[in-house]
Nucleic acid binder design. Sequence first.
DNA 1: ATATCGAATGTCGACGTCGTCATTTCAATT
DNA 2: AATTGAAATGACGACGTCGACATTCGATAT
Lengths: 336, 336
Amino acid sequence: MVSIKDVARIAGVSDKTVSRVVNREPNVTQDTIEKVQSAIDALGYIPNLAARSIRSSRTNIIGIITDYISTTPYSGDIVRGVQDWAGANGRTVLLANTDGNAEREANIWRTFKAHRIDGVLYVAMYHRTVAPASGDVSIPTVLVNSHAEAGLTYSSIEPDDFGGSYALTQHLVELGHRRIGYIRLNPLLLGANQRLDAFLAATQAGGIAENDIIVRLGMEGPIGAETNYVYREALSILSMPNRPTALVCGNDEMALQAYLAALSLGLRIPDDITIVGFDDFRTVSLALKPELTTVALPYYDLGWQGAEMLNDLAEGASAIERRILKCNLVGRQSSK
Amino acid sequence: MVSIKDVARIAGVSDKTVSRVVNREPNVTQDTIEKVQSAIDALGYIPNLAARSIRSSRTNIIGIITDYISTTPYSGDIVRGVQDWAGANGRTVLLANTDGNAEREANIWRTFKAHRIDGVLYVAMYHRTVAPASGDVSIPTVLVNSHAEAGLTYSSIEPDDFGGSYALTQHLVELGHRRIGYIRLNPLLLGANQRLDAFLAATQAGGIAENDIIVRLGMEGPIGAETNYVYREALSILSMPNRPTALVCGNDEMALQAYLAALSLGLRIPDDITIVGFDDFRTVSLALKPELTTVALPYYDLGWQGAEMLNDLAEGASAIERRILKCNLVGRQSSK
DNA sequence: ATATCGAATGTCGACGTCGTCATTTCAATT
DNA sequence: AATTGAAATGACGACGTCGACATTCGATAT
């Protein structure tokens, strides 16, 4: 590999002068700059960041630790947000995936430390409580789409499931719905409870009677291997003699199944039944006809802002911040 | 940061001896090993990989360059496959995303070279032809889910869209379907043509008359901003007086729309109409009721095997290999 | 011509690790 | 006790970069 010394030799200057040119330091003649630059171009010289980092003890690398990357398709957008921030700020991203395996996680922390990375974004693919196994040597860490278990202090950034669900429910109340069905997510998911709680709070605030609320469990069991009751429950709710006029689903994938149930019963959406989802998982929400009213999770922003927070931390900010990002209602044609 | 010298001082040995222990070199007394090990544990010493790499000019880092990571949800599995291989083989993964932007791509190559990574996996998120902008200095590179434009020589690994589509079509012929509709993908996608070609070849081989094949265009326009005709075309095909008994969709998302169209016409799946997809995009294929017969893309294996191929290349193998991975038929309840 | 001073450039060493080679230790053999 | 040889350990330098400091250069003022 061509090094700074090779460039120096070709340009007929010292290695330090090349270094000055590369790092755009002042007090270098225009003439010298050109000589050096053409030597760089001729040799295709690219500075060795490893060497740089052992001198400066700063790597400009941030690490991402993810868990179940493939179970929640769009959460990859978190990673994209981080990457875009990194690209815009001269950082590089090291990525590793635990698959929920503790031993693997410990290894990843070790490797990241060996790389002397500047910080870690600990990204949960579904919104939940986590306990990073960072070990004794500490690295600046920000939890993304998650927060720390009781007793652990980490900065974190999360979506406002509660607020999003509240807004969505309010939307239905404003449309005049007085009897509403609800199919809830796997209770293991943090969002499941927050969304349901907000739904119940908003319906109550909207003056809807308790027995005009029909709540059913849509899924349960371990993440990635859950049992799915959604279709059956949707059929059951929609077959009730006094069927509700709106059906709220824990997420868009559930809404899809509710669509199928509704259509197979000959119901038209949204004329006979309003159906709404959550996540704005676009491969589903936009493919459904009519397109689905849902709530968008701010995945990309979680990543971008999480990276910003991490940067603050790595620069010395010591305050622990717990940031909550808004989930916006996305009104489409499935609600009326 | 604690270095090898700190450990040496505490253990009362030379830095080289610590190095020997860390790297499990022979000819070290058991006694010394223990002394050193306890110093390592006490200090929490972790070797600095950057320092190691400037000596050995081997980083054990492989880079992944992706394009449109968020448009094809499950293709993140390619990355997961790479990561798993890396984890199992002591490598670390550097990740960057071009978003289809050439300038960004050039920057990424520069950065990767600056990190002196061992090789690059150039991953396309949808199957296509690519022209990596790797610049003059070369790094071992393998193209994943893509192959090189004419004139460029790169090793590559791709899914066998043709074979998968052929098997799927054959399955329908074997089920006795003699009149079949086909909604095709955006022609910009490489898979679009391969899948359609295989469909036409398999129907012809199965003795189906040309005018019993109804092909419609489902999508067109730039990736990520296409116009979608699927629902309309599905309705149109399914409303024909002599409607086909099976409908093949370019991918699972299209199949979803075909389901909606069929149900809204009061048709039952699969009794009145067989519908099949492609991709085995599980959030859709398993959520559909009945579950969708489709073809699985070997995303994970593309990643894992791509990493293997890259490793061979980095170790000195000079042969260019073009590997094609099988796409397996996944029979479920939507075909009969 | 000479002194002065800032600008331009160079020399040197340190960062952390490990290969090379030299030195020390120790047990086995004469 | 002296010799031998292998095993164990250490000293040193190089990898590529850049900070600290030293030196040289060139222009201006005397």
